[in-house]
């Protein structure tokens, strides 16, 4: 296999709350994302999935560990050239489209902000054309560039969020719970759009979510997070057909199915979260499927 696009090695992210209290949000996480694939990061709230995304794109300074992106080290102190490369090639789609768009800026200016900062457009016409083209790609119309965020519905705003990330032609997009704030029928639209864009631009996604069923649709590989550690990683098919870690099993058993009779018959796989956690050995189930043995 070729070199991974993103390589995270033993990432730790701690937050010091007070002299005596440190939140250890991420405790030694390692994984790789290859060019053009979708890696799903799943876990419940507090498992550290959002923190990982934010550490990778350097909204936080990782406490420990190494991150390589496109062959360059992007952890530790960033020099100007690396930072520029990182900001152009890695983009993020945020969770809440209501609060992640500046209400005082026009859609066109929000989308073109990256272009402006990096001086990528020589003329106003070129800038307008690129914004128009990207709006069309996400299913909006170029005329929308003159409007403000509050004039759009939730689904449309998330399309703007996607357009903002896409205009830089990034190699990796970190999508942090980007559909969980949307209605069911709109979620499907946005997921399909993301798939279409990936087929066209060959960008990779790091798809962060708590909704396992949606993750299944979009991901090639999945990592399950629990208490800041990756407890199970594997191909989507392997995770769903042969979950090994008790946490993964309980997660899968809790996803409600749209089938009343089956749902009534089903039993929750309970999971004793107090006795599971901490370090353990990583055991290989198959070449692509491995489990952290801390249970």
């Amino acid at each position: 296999m070729s070199e991974p696009l993103l390589k995270v090695k033993n990432l730790r992210q701690h937050f010091k709350i007070s002299r005596s209290f440190t939140v250890k949000a991420v405790e030694g996480v390692s994984f790789e994302v290859y060019a053009g694939e979708t890696y799903g990061l799943v876990g419940e709230s507090g498992s550290g999935k959002t923190t990982i995304g934010r550490s990778i794109i350097r909204l936080y300074d990782p406490t420990d560990g190494e991150i390589f992106f496109d062959g360059k080290k992007i952890s530790g102190k960033l020099d100007d050239a690396t930072e520029k490369m990182l900001r152009q090639n890695m983009q993020m789609i945020f969770q809440d489209p209501m609060s992640s768009l500046n209400p005082r800026k026009k859609i066109g200016d929000i989308i073109a902000e990256g272009l402006d900062i990096h001086g990528l457009c020589a003329t106003k016409e070129e800038r307008k054309a690129r914004v128009g083209a990207i709006l069309k790609k996400v299913g909006l119309s170029p005329a929308h560039a003159e409007r403000y965020p509050q004039q759009f519905s939730g689904g449309q705003r998330q399309r703007v969020g996607i357009a903002r990330a896409l205009i830089m032609n990034p190699k990796l997009i970190i999508a942090d719970e980007c559909i969980s704030a949307l209605d069911v029928s709109i979620q499907a639209q946005v997921v399909n759009l993301m798939k279409d864009i990936q087929a066209e631009t060959k960008c990779a996604y790091l798809f962060i979510a708590h909704d396992l069923s949606m993750v299944k649709y979009i991901s090639d590989r999945i990592g399950v997070l629990h208490k800041g550690r990756l407890v199970e990683t594997g191909l989507t098919r392997e995770i769903f057909s042969n979950p090994v870690h008790p946490y993964t099993r309980s997660l899968l058993s809790a996803v409600p199915q749209p089938n009343p009779v089956v749902e009534r018959r089903r039993h929750l796989v309970s999971f004793d979260s107090d006795n599971v956690g901490g370090d353990g050995e990583i055991v290989r189930v198959s070449a692509t499927h491995s489990v952290l043995e801390n249970f």
Binding site: V184, A188, Y217
Partner: peptide, 16 residues
């Protein structure tokens, strides 16, 4: 539009 754990559909049906 509900994702279904049983199927391997590549695309979700969505209401336009």
């Amino acid at each position: 539009a509900m994702p279904d754990l049983e199927t391997d559909d590549e695309r979700l049906y969505s209401i336009p």
